[in-house]
Simulated assay, not measured.
Amino acid sequence: MTGPEARQAWLDWLAHERRASPHTLAAYGADLSDFLGFLTRHLGGEPDLAALGSLRPADLRAFLAERATRDGVGNATRARQLAAVRGFFRFLARHHGLVPLALAGLRGPKVVQPAPRPLTAEQAREVADATGSVENTPLLAARDKALFTLLYGCGLRISEALALDVRNAPRAGTGLRVVGKGSKERVVPVLPAVASAIGTYLALRGHPAPESPLFLGARGERLNPAVAQKALRDYRRLAGLPESATPHALRHSFATHLLGAGGDLRSIQELLGHASLSTTQRYTSVDAVKLLETWQKAHPRAG
């Protein structure tokens, strides 16, 4: 089996067994292409399973070094590429008997995750209520209000919201079933404000078919994330909101405002669909930063 054949076998396994998203498959496929291209230059020929099995940690370090020095790739990208290579080697070990000697004791680049940048409660409400004002029809304005109210009110990723169909439309008093990363399902409660905004939008659409997309673009197709991002970008510039006012910031705001109001971390993890509690714990740093700012402004000895 050649390296490219092994790469395709791993991607097929990720797609069918792990149900990885198209975005994940594209990213990991590109990462493995970079790695195999490096090995072809590094080894003087296209690698096969035997060549992959004979690699050592020094070979992987050489790959990461080349990505940094020749290609100018940062730590976060190199850490992701190393994660892809690890997954690839573990697949080969499990399904083809390869001993992944190259992974022995190897540590990846250190990546410091930036703290989330949520909006204030007032800014989040303004984004949800008023972003539609940049649209040129009542239907599109109602669509934007419904979408951004949903993102803030339920803490959804924009991809999760745009994947919904009309039959999955949020309704007050019932849980909204969301399919997140890795095809994992979760149920989130629906606020009356969310159900009201969605209901207004659907009424303007004239009671669409249950199987049609919940959020439509101007041409009647499923709404593209880039269109929603542009609408918010246009509005925030008109309204003087910070550049951090993005659709994903509404999800950050959902989590941060819940935590600030006394929500427990484990429940917020479930609502966000995080696989690891450590991911959710990033929001505690935001709360700590705000606490320090309050102390510096209010304490008599802070100056």
Results as ranks from 00 to 15, higher is better:
residue 242 P to E: 01
residue 208 P to R: 03
residue 193 A to C: 07
residue 121 A to M: 10
residue 12 D to P: 00
residue 112 V to W: 10
residue 267 S to T: 15
residue 186 R to W: 08
residue 69 T to P: 05
residue 116 P to E: 00
residue 158 I to E: 00
residue 78 R to D: 02
residue 138 P to V: 08
residue 49 L to C: 11
residue 301 R to K: 11
residue 290 K to G: 01
residue 100 P to Q: 02
residue 243 E to K: 06
residue 216 L to R: 15
residue 70 R to H: 04
residue 113 Q to F: 07
residue 166 V to N: 01
residue 242 P to I: 09
residue 43 L to N: 14
residue 288 A to I: 13
residue 95 H to W: 13
residue 86 R to V: 09
residue 60 L to H: 00
residue 73 V to M: 13
residue 99 V to A: 13
residue 225 P to M: 06
residue 265 L to S: 09
residue 125 R to S: 14
residue 205 R to G: 02
residue 149 T to M: 08
residue 264 D to P: 06
residue 143 R to T: 02
residue 64 L to R: 04
residue 211 E to K: 15
residue 143 R to K: 12
residue 108 G to K: 12
residue 195 A to T: 14
residue 229 Q to M: 08
residue 293 E to W: 04
residue 142 A to W: 03
residue 186 R to F: 06
residue 105 G to Y: 08
residue 145 K to H: 13
residue 98 L to I: 15
residue 41 R to G: 15
residue 189 P to R: 10
residue 135 E to D: 14
residue 56 R to A: 15
residue 19 R to V: 05
residue 154 C to T: 15
residue 266 R to C: 10
residue 253 S to H: 03
residue 275 A to P: 12
residue 107 R to V: 13
residue 299 H to V: 11
residue 165 D to V: 14
residue 261 A to V: 02
residue 203 A to I: 05
residue 151 L to S: 00
residue 166 V to F: 11
residue 134 V to F: 11
residue 230 K to C: 08
residue 91 F to C: 00
residue 17 E to K: 12
residue 225 P to I: 07
